[in-house]
């Protein structure tokens, strides 16, 4: 047993803090909850699921239900219009702010990944890439109309322009592997386009999504713009894809065996769908480097609006 320092004595801290002997202090665990409308409710179903952590101990992950999902869609719909109405510059700044806050929580993100079985170096690389990916997206909102839209030189006396607008409420089935980088890579595109999101987090590795929710809650992303639900995907997906107030689905993380059902559900209300291109697998390196910088992550949920006006008196 070491001797307590003067400072420790003054603060009456337990010895463990000074000596890194964890055993003397009981860790305060985090309750991993849902993130809906800017708040952190437990599932209304009262369910949770035990996940064993690689560093030892367990985490209880909230088991989101169909009703939680409906609530998330309700608050997302309310958040959609004000978020789309923010200027492109402000949306970009808010996404950059998310990156700033993620940087501050890098250690926790790394721990989450390690707890789900990643090696130290893989975890560090994924966290760094995820933060950089958010910065990449932060630069997009005020450039989309220049890159994707424009004025159209029609063969009549009209001034005609085409601009991208957000689709609305998008459900994102987050990639199962690459639980942080994959999530940020898809969610960033949805947000950069001015949409709001309901995220079904990675089922096997949900902790990074929980930490991201806690990061978003203290960022400037308005409540309801991102809603994150941890749940069993096979249970929620059939309801998610048939919810008529969801305008689009990012199915990059949809398990192959559920893809047909998911697309059929989306088709019933003419919802937009983004899915992995043929040959791209949901695996840990799917979003590494420039492969993950995909503008189609944004364009999948944009609507092009063309406006005509006559020229003349």
């Amino acid at each position: 047993m070491g001797k307590k320092s003067k400072r420790a004595e003054k603060l009456n801290l337990p010895l463990a803090i000074e000596t890194n002997e964890v055993s003397e202090r009981l860790e305060v665990r985090r309750t991993a909850k849902l993130y809906i409308g800017g708040a952190f409710p437990r599932s209304e179903s009262g369910r949770s699921r035990e996940v064993k952590l690689a560093k030892g101990g367990v985490a209880n992950i909230a088991g989101g239900s169909r009703k939680d999902l409906r609530e998330a869609v309700r608050v997302a719909r309310i958040a959609a219009e004000p978020w789309a109405a923010r200027t492109a510059m402000v949306r970009g700044q808010i996404l950059y702010r998310v990156a700033e806050l993620m940087e501050g929580r890098a250690a926790q993100f790394r721990d989450d990944l390690i707890n789900h079985g990643a090696s130290k170096s893989d975890a560090a690389a994924e966290v760094a890439a995820a933060i950089d990916r958010m910065v990449w997206y932060a630069g997009w909102p005020d450039k989309l109309s220049a890159v994707l839209g424009g004025t159209n030189p029609v063969a009549s006396s009209h001034f005609v322009f085409t601009l991208p607008e957000p689709t609305g409420v998008i459900a994102c089935i987050a990639p199962e592997s690459s639980p942080l980088l994959g999530l940020v890579s898809r969610l960033g595109g949805i947000l950069a386009g001015g949409n709001v999101a309901i995220v079904l987090a990675s089922e096997s590795a949900p902790l990074p999504a929980v930490t991201l929710a806690e990061t978003l809650a203290v960022s400037d992303v308005p409540a309801g713009v991102v809603n994150i639900i941890t749940a069993r995907r096979t249970e929620l997906l059939p309801h998610l894809v048939r919810h008529a107030d969801i305008d689009g689905y990012d199915l990059w993380g949809c398990p192959d065996e559920l893809l047909t059902e998911a697309e059929q559900g989306a088709a019933e209300h003419v919802a937009r769908v983004a899915r992995r291109p043929h040959g791209v697998k949901d695996r840990a390196d799917a979003f590494d480097g420039e492969r993950g910088e995909r503008i189609d992550g944004i364009t999948a949920f944009l609507e092009m609006k063309t406006v005509w006006h006559p020229i003349g008196s």
């Binding site: 159209n152 030189p153 029609v154 063969a155 009549s156 009209h158 005609v160 085409t162 305008d247 209300h269 003419v270 609507e303 092009m304 609006k305 063309t306 406006v307 005509w308 006006h309 006559p310």
Partner: peptide, 24 residues
């Protein structure tokens, strides 16, 4: 709406994108 005609209507041109929002 994907196409908005202001002080005109039913104009089409190959250079101007056409298509719908929502269930259009």
């Amino acid at each position: 709406a994907g196409v908005v005609w202001a002080n005109t209507f039913n104009r089409f041109d190959p250079t101007a994108p056409f298509g719908g929002y929502k269930e259009s």
